[in-house]
Each structure stands twice: as C-alpha cells, then as structure tokens.
Amino acid sequence: MNQIQIGRLLSATTRQLVVGCQVSQIDLPAIGSLVRINPQVDYAIYGLVYDLYIADDGLVRQLATVGEMDEKVIADHRLNRSVPIEIRVLSVGYKMAGQIYHLLPPKPPLGLEILWLCSDEEIVEFTNSGRYGYLRHILREQDVAVEEVLAAHIKLADNAHRQKGEADWSHKAVQEVIVLLRDDYAALTRVLQSLADSQIFS
C-alpha cells in the first residue's frame, strides 16, 4: 500500500485530533478526507478532516504591512514558518485486531503520532463496514460545518466506491443521513443542499 504521510499529532481527545503539518504537506488532505493514525501495530484510529487552520506566527503580521514583497520572502515564510499548519480531524472509528468499529476510539493517540491519508481501498473498507454508524460522529458536532464536511466526504467516498464498481454506495449513505436527520428539518435541508452543490447526484 502506498502510504501518504500528512503530519504529526499535536493534541487529541477521543473525539478530535489536531495534527500539525508543513506547508509542503498541506496540498495532500482535503476536507472530508479519511485519515488514519496507528498508535499501535494492531490499533488504528480513523478520522475525517473537518478543518485546516493556518495560525498567525508573529512574523506574518509584520510582513503583511510591507508594500511590495519579493517572491522569495513569501516562499521563505511559507516553507520555513515556525508554527505548523493545523489539520483538525474528527474521530469516526477505529480498527482493532482486524475489526473495524464505528465507535469513538477507546483511547486517544499520543503526541507526534503520524497521520496518514487513507487509500481508496481503506475508504471502501471503512465505509462498507457496519451500517454507516460513523456518520453520527459527524452529525452531532456543533462547531463543525457538518453539511460541508459530509458533502465533501460523500463525494470522495463515492469516487472511491465507484472505482470499485459500487455505484450505489452514495445512495445508501444519503438515505442513512436522511434517516438520521429527518427530525431536524433545518439541518437536513442544509446537508441536502450541500450534497446538491457537490454535483454527485443528478
């Protein structure tokens, strides 16, 4: 399997992970991507990228006041900044002893664990496991742009499933989302609108 490393863990709870990465790595993950941390050999934690945060490192304020700026200065600031770019991840499940669970991980990973981007095979394996239970971890978040994350994830996952010849995965996933949100008109409407904008569906 071609492993793509994204960054290292900065902080974690059982529900959320914060990972720091360099600018050179920032092109890799997108919102909605399925990522993984392997704290132990037989233990993997899965998460969905829900936010990317570029913090102010002190120098950028001074640079922003300069009128004309050399391209080399901008490149140097981006590549050699002292504060990493933060990738925020929602924990959506874990794998232990070869079995995938759509539950919160029993314990969070420790600092500086490596965050890996999941391959299409892993996406299919994780999302086909169980009955879409991991979606509830996304839907219950208050401070997350749930509809955007969900639409991005379904689009990415749909693409992975289509590569494997499973054209109706997204149909079932959306059905599950509708079931989970049908008592919340406003939230469901926002999610469906985002899915409509993602142009997955006809």
Binding site: H171, I178, R182, L192, F201, S202
Partner: peptide
C-alpha cells in the same frame, strides 16, 4: 416542493424517508 430545489435523486430519497 423540494423537488424544485434538489436533484431528482435527492428529492426522491428525501420524500421516501420523510
């Protein structure tokens, strides 16, 4: 009339569940 705002597939699934 969500079928006017959503793609027909989404609208159909929404109606089927709600």
């Amino acid at each position: 009339e969500s079928e006017l705002r959503l793609p027909s597939d989404l609208a159909s699934w929404l109606h089927g569940q709600t």
